[in-house]
Design a binder for these strands. Structure first.
Lengths: 164, 164
DNA sequence: AAATTAAGTCAGTCTTATTGACATAATTGA
DNA sequence: TCAATTATGTCAATAAGACTGACTTAATTT
């Protein structure tokens, strides 16, 4: 039960430290996801729907291919989820005027309402953790997480908000 | 494409800041998981096998019910995965002497080898991020992640390693 | 002796994801 | 202009990982 400690191993601290980081990430993500999952079930939706609603809400007018690149899933996987959200009027598509192959996705009022409902809970969880930890810890949190993300995708992240 | 900014909204910064945190968590977890996933596929295993191997390796002699509490999945879900790992000799069970209902789980040599293979990659990713971010940022990272985790489970996390 | 706990099993279902093969429409490049 | 490429969408089959519900067995507690 107790983590096995290898005494007199100079690498112990480092290994232990890294494992703790992995566990923190696992537990944090698990709990971060759990609340919205439960709410989505009432709509007959799942986690995948949440991700689509979130990123479309965050990037109004996003194209299908950009969404695929963010989610890193296949077109066929997205299709089922996106199709449901379109049919049930949570998301609308319009054709891009400059390139008419493109479909630009946005949330409807109904979609925005659900988005807020789901995101609010998660935002509260983060806000509580941020408040308790303080500004300096928050900066550290952001810096380390950025470092964990693949370099190619760091650019996708919004820049830090300026303070003042 | 560009996140829509609501000017003159005093809540903007806060909302933006919280959304960035959510996205950092999403991208970091997505990339953190991706490498082991690809390696596991070669064994005919998936993410669920990894989690079991990881937590059994980390807690030698763990009981089935403790493992279920960590993973927060059902017994039936665990059963399929654990059964495979037992049959293919990655994990062994022995009966607890003091309470013979309990099955104590541990990795075999083969299991430890796979565990190391999988964990090493992830550890390297974390180590790189830690190195780049510095000790202070690491402390902040840990503090905020702890705050995100449900209170009941914070006790499950190992205490900070002492420095010196 | 009865109740509870720990583990395991059978059966059926759902969501999310995959690969592979095509189809259509629009845009780009030679 | 015509061929190639790109963006999107669809059909079909498959797999992993999870769920609910119902039950069994063995061991321990009350």
């Amino acid at each position: 039960m107790t983590p096995s400690k290898t005494r007199a191993n100079p690498l112990f601290l480092r290994d232990e430290e890294l494992r703790q980081a992995m566990e923190l990430l696992f537990y944090a993500y698990r709990d971060f996801i759990a609340e919205p999952d439960a709410m989505l079930a009432k709509y007959g939706f799942g986690r995948a729907h949440h991700r689509v609603i979130y990123f479309v809400g965050r990037n109004p007018g996003i194209t299908v291919s950009r969404l695929l690149a963010i989610l890193k899933i296949t077109k066929q996987s997205l299709s089922r989820v996106l199709g449901q959200l379109l049919r049930e009027d949570f998301i609308v598509q319009r054709t891009d005027r400059v390139d008419r192959r493109r479909r630009l996705l946005s949330l409807t009022a109904k979609g925005e309402e659900l988005e807020r409902l789901l995101t609010d809970r998660q935002a509260k969880r983060i806000a509580r953790a941020y408040r308790q930890a303080g500004a300096e810890a928050v900066e550290g949190f952001r810096t380390v997480l950025r470092g964990i993300i693949n370099e190619d995708d760091r650019g996708r992240l919004a820049a830090r908000p300026e303070r003042g």
